[in-house]
Design a protein around this nucleic acid. Structure first.
Lengths: 345, 345
DNA sequence: CTGTTAGCGCCTTCAG
DNA sequence: CTGAAGGCGCTAACAG
């Protein structure tokens, strides 16, 4: 069966016996039209099942009501929840969302963005956990023609709006929570290739040194931190690391790792939080689903997303470039508790 | 800072001293162009940072390389993983993905679709778990102009392609697995408002009756099955139901419920799988993350997504309407085991 | 090989 | 209040 040709404004005009201009006017309701002709046009529209062609409209008004979103992938619910927030905000402003996954590959990321630009999006939101080998000139060039918002990126580029959490502060808060419970020695679990891990590690080092503890031997890197294997990889790594450490608590750079740590403890017959405490970071849905429920720092991804959408739209409408930093808030659940008594001596 | 006006094909033509047709030819590489002029044009393109306007191109060729995807939301990783599969396949065919969340609301769903049509997408993929109050005429009308693919929808509409799992068969398989382990009385946990739950329940009833067991008192409905609260809701419901049942196993319509059941067991101090077995359905990432790891029926969402994308593209290129049914495969993990000995008598 | 030209579907002055 | 006409950026004949 062949597709029916879509009706155009000309078809409607003909059927209604008016000019295309008039049809345009009733569709957009931007100029007065006599009641009677309006209904005639509307009848024709219904009859032909006419839907205006947004592409044509936008070509000629040189505006575009779609925005592009680039994420590394959907494996970590973190990104899904951010997208949820973006989508929700955009819907209210009648924007549409073009989604691209960059697979954690900077080259892919730039490709996605070019594709988005050629699709004439009116702005782009990028979540790029790793801005280390970011091609800065690419972005400075890009932003001259297309408004840009980064989420949680730690790489300053002029005129790029930004929304993120103060992860250094969040890390301090998390560490303080642990210390208030009496934990002195804390194992720091991070992944590879993400600015946010580095920021957290730096913070960790400072805090530990401030407590007179040499941090080096308390840091473990489990590799890729946002993949389908992150939980298992973390568990495997900690199965080796946990028995050798004298730490009484584990701080994980995200919840995937947190759950991996939890599973490692179970496998090792360590009671959580009685024998050892665990903290995650992000507060993805998973954190609530496991048992015991994971204590974590909430990044409120939904808000991250909706704020980013808001900034982008402001920028599109010639508002200023802004940089918003949100607070992480501690969500105490069931994996943190008082440090166990020292048995030695 | 104001945006730089984007360069057009005319700008490039002028700078290179050629006609727009020639520029078009080198951009699309579809007609021979003399080596020397080609490089001249390419230089101009680079100099002006020219990116072709896809909207204009597609307006003119009456094709469109974007397709629309409508999902209920991103809360259940199920949908995120399906999208992953779609995105991956589309990328290879240079299509882009316009994402819309319908929030489980049929009205919203139709709105999304209309928006997609007006954006001139060349096809639409819909995941709509609940086709009960589907407005059939809307879809029959729609499909006359835009190719359509349903994922996991149990509502036949002529000329709509479809890809899904045989959930009845999957349910049988799951039940058989449980029965082979010696379980006779099985609790069936479902949610509200989804065709797939109903299909599973019907299958459950038939199987149980076949075993001479009255199914009614073994069926529990936990309400909304794809929300952020599904896990907790299930846990709450089962906290009440589990102590009153003589079932030795629980079959859950999706993994969110499966994890909820698992948590309920923990809270009740029931050992899984020694005291009670639990089966999920879907095999979302979460199933592997919890501990003990959830035994479940794999729906292979990624494949669901990539197959849907493939069907859609075939249809767009005037291929036939197809209906594909994939198999669920049993993934034995750690939550199912032999039925406990009966203590009574 | 290259330039000219006529639209794609729509909006928007500019005249009635 | 309504119609005619130009043009958004690009492609696809059709002539050279």
């Amino acid at each position: 069966m062949e597709q029916k040709r879509k009706a155009t404004i000309v078809d409607v005009a003909k059927l209604a016996g008016v000019s295309v201009a008039t049809v345009s006017r009733v569709v957009n309701a931007n100029y007065p039209v006599k009641e009677e002709t309006r209904t005639r046009v509307q009848d024709a529209i219904r009859e032909l099942d006419y839907v205006p062609n947004v592409q044509a409209r936008e070509l000629n008004t040189r505006r575009s009501s779609t925005i592009g979103v680039v994420v590394p992938g959907l494996y970590n619910m973190f990104f899904a929840q951010v997208i949820d927030g973006i989508e929700d905000y955009l819907r209210q402003d009648a924007y549409s969302l073009l989604l691209n996954c960059a697979k954690n590959d900077p080259k892919q990321e730039m490709k996605c963005i070019t594709a988005l630009v050629s699709r004439n999006v009116s702005g782009i939101i990028v979540i790029s956990p790793n801005t280390a080998h970011i091609k800065e000139s690419f972005y400075t060039q890009l932003v001259r023609r297309t408004p840009l918002v980064f989420i949680n990126a730690y790489h300053y580029i002029p005129d790029v709006s930004y929304v993120g959490n103060d992860e250094a502060l969040g890390t301090q808060e998390a560490l303080r929570h642990l210390m208030q419970l009496g934990h002195q020695r804390i194992l720091f679990v991070r992944g590879a290739n993400s600015d946010s891990y580095q920021i957290k590690e730096d913070t960790f080092r400072v805090v530990m040194r401030g407590r007179g503890i040499q941090p080096d031997k308390y840091i473990v890197n489990i590799g890729e931190g946002n993949s389908a294997e992150t939980v298992d990889d973390t568990q495997q790594t900690l199965l080796g690391a946990l028995p050798q450490t004298d730490a009484t608590a584990v701080f994980c750079c995200n919840d995937l790792m947190g759950v991996g740590a939890l599973n490692a403890c179970k496998a090792l017959n360590l009671r959580v939080p009685d024998d050892i405490s665990i903290m995650g970071f992000d507060n993805i849905a998973l954190a609530r689903y496991v048992s015991p429920k994971l204590t974590t720092m909430d990044q409120n991804m939904f808000r991250l997303g909706s704020n980013a959408a808001q900034l982008l739209i402001e920028r599109i409408e010639n508002g200023p470039c802004k940089r918003i930093t949100l607070d992480n808030v501690l969500v105490k659940r069931e994996t943190t508790g008082r440090a166990p008594m020292r048995m030695e001596g």
